[in-house]
Design a binder for these strands. Structure first.
Lengths: 214, 214
DNA sequence: TTTTTGGATCTTGGATACAATTTAAAAAAA
DNA sequence: TTTTTTTAAATTGTATCCAAGATCCAAAAA
């Protein structure tokens, strides 16, 4: 039931499928993505494939070179350091600008998501935890009127295997405790504190990940 | 002789043409970009048009909605504030990480570019100043090994009419004086100072621009 | 008069087939 | 063995066609 989400265009479906394949290592780093092969494999024509590859290029998952085609990007330790450094700052700014425009309904929804994540941890349901975590982060940014930075955050969180960080033992618990701290900062109406918490939250996840890689 | 640059693919040429048209207000904000019209006007088929629109979407110049097509994005005062805030931070990080890996040849080239810009100011040649300015900023970032942030900087500087800031009276002189200060920081081998200078340089340009808009 | 409904029309999304470039690899010649 | 030439593969681009969704306007109903 994983593919039950209804995409409005085929191109979006193709994008999601290829992205998933890259995350699951079906397409390995450095591997060339031949348009005709993909088209045949997915049972679609070349056109949605090409647009999908452009989208994935924007997300930083593949590299499209003129007349050479698309290649899966390999992720180095340095790439992860960069990613989390940038995410930390960008999401920090976003939530600081967002906070004062969040409604009490948003606050409740955030609380709800945190409780759900606690349950996901008990059930050891990784996929659901990842989903709820993404929803939490997205909702926290809702009030920010800056569009570019929100788009970047979305790309960053989609463009990298969001599952990986959660694979770290006991990482989920720590993560959700930090989420609860954010809710406190929200209640205290302290945007600067919230920003700091988010920045630390992301940097910590990044450091855990780089440690794990070695 | 403006279109004399030889692009490797037609799609890049189309992208550049449409981008130029948006900057020159030939396509006004909010205007719909109909694929067939563009194809007919540029004498190409629809495929390169579609890929070009995706690229422009990534640059933030157009918005592509499923089944509705592409629209030229309007730029508000807040968008400019956001843009320069982000650019300031991102380019700041980049040059700090870049500095120690710049060669003496790069240093000479930077010096050379500053002199060229002085000359451009005397000749009142705006286009050339803009070009040299972009080259200066790009070269200053050359040593940075972080790829994503460099790509973002490139997109930001391409995705917004780079000419506009330079239209501010006496802005070019001030700008180039700041470039000279950067070269000093480079000679002093002080990456943190260089970063601060770059951040201020960009923020100042942004503030000037928002003031001008009112 | 205002609202709603029902197409007619336009535009994008996608498929297919084919030509043209470019890259890369294999084969042949020096 | 090295260099050159040829050949094959892959991408890029063109042309055409059809289907699905969006837009808009006119006619019908409240």
């Amino acid at each position: 039931m994983k593919q039950s989400i209804d995409f409005t265009t085929l191109q979006e479906k193709v994008t999601a499928t290829i992205r998933e394949a890259i995350f699951t290592q079906t397409f390995k780093p450095g591997e060339r993505l031949i348009q005709d092969e993909l088209a045949a494999k997915l049972g679609v024509s070349r056109m949605p494939i090409r647009e999908a590859l452009r989208c994935l290029e924007r997300e930083g998952l593949v590299e499209v070179l003129p007349h050479k085609g698309a290649q899966v990007i390999g992720i180095s330790k340095e790439d992860i350091e960069e990613l989390y450094y940038l995410r930390s700052f960008l999401e920090g700014v976003t939530v600081q600008k967002s906070m004062n425009f969040l409604t009490s309904g948003d606050r409740e929804e955030l609380q709800h998501l945190v409780e759900k994540m606690d349950q996901d941890i008990r059930n050891n349901n990784l996929d659901l935890f990842v989903t709820h975590n993404q929803e939490f982060h997205t909702l926290l940014q809702k009030g920010c009127s800056w569009k570019k930075v929100k788009m970047l955050n979305k790309q960053f969180i989609e463009g990298y295997p969001a599952h990986v960080p959660s694979l770290i033992p006991h990482s989920m618990q720590v993560s959700n405790e930090e989420h609860k701290a954010m809710l406190e900062a929200l209640d205290q109406k302290d945007p600067v504190k919230l920003r700091q918490l988010v920045e630390l939250h992301i940097m910590r996840a990044g450091e855990k990940l780089t440690q794990l890689i070695e």
